[in-house]
Amino acid sequence: MPITDHQEQKPVKLRARNLDFSYGDKKVLDGISMDIFAEQATAIIGPSGCGKSTFLKCFNRIHEVSSEVRVAGDLEIDGVDIFRGGIHEVELRRRVGMVFQKPNPFPKSIYENVVFGPKLFGVRDRDILDGIAEESLRKAALWDEVKDRLKESAMSMSGGQQQRLCIARALAVNPEVLLMDEPCSALDPIATAKIEELIFELKKEFTVLMVTHNMQQAARVSDYTAFFWLGRLIEMGPTERIFTNPRDRMTEDYISGRFG
């Protein structure tokens, strides 16, 4: 059973049960069981190499890009099994968007970046695409900065803008879940603050699951926090409780900076 103490009214969006994951002979995740609630931000913290990014990537099966990966256990979205159930990986990735550690805009125009997803799914109508582009850029708090330069290359933007563009790009396919893999680690404090504000807004509409190295960030933006250590889930609970009254000695040591 998941190690948590929630009294949540929201439904469970993502569920992991006894998830094992190995790269070749190296076991990265060891029996993770965890519930992630809809329309909440859940942060995963833990030292480098604890498997938190790997865990995140399982939810849209992007880990399958690399070879020699073995997964055991169950992952569900809305109760439907992700690995064996009737959901195609392309459909899964439309429903579970992802923002990567380093901004990775395509070397195309800002506009083409945002409408990339909708175009994949066959939207051709120019007016509809324009509408999606504006809506997504507004949600990513980027519209005012780029509305006059939509045709310019995304490569000409600053790092923080690029990351918000990547968020807009993910939002454009109207996902249900947003995975964020250390979305601010390559950004300066001002850009980081903007992304954090954004996450705060986004969790009202989407289920956000983020990995972060930055404990203050987890404390600021998330409703739930999970602490990973050496591929295991040590403790999960409401963020305020985890940071004020951790139950596990290891969690306490980590958040008080005694190791990590």
Partner: peptide, 20 residues
């Protein structure tokens, strides 16, 4: 990350190759 970005948006292998 370019390839992963395209796949994460729901591209198939070929769509990622052709479009990105």
């Amino acid at each position: 990350t370019l390839d992963e970005g395209a796949l994460a948006l729901g591209s198939t292998r070929w769509q990622s190759i052709w479009r990105v």
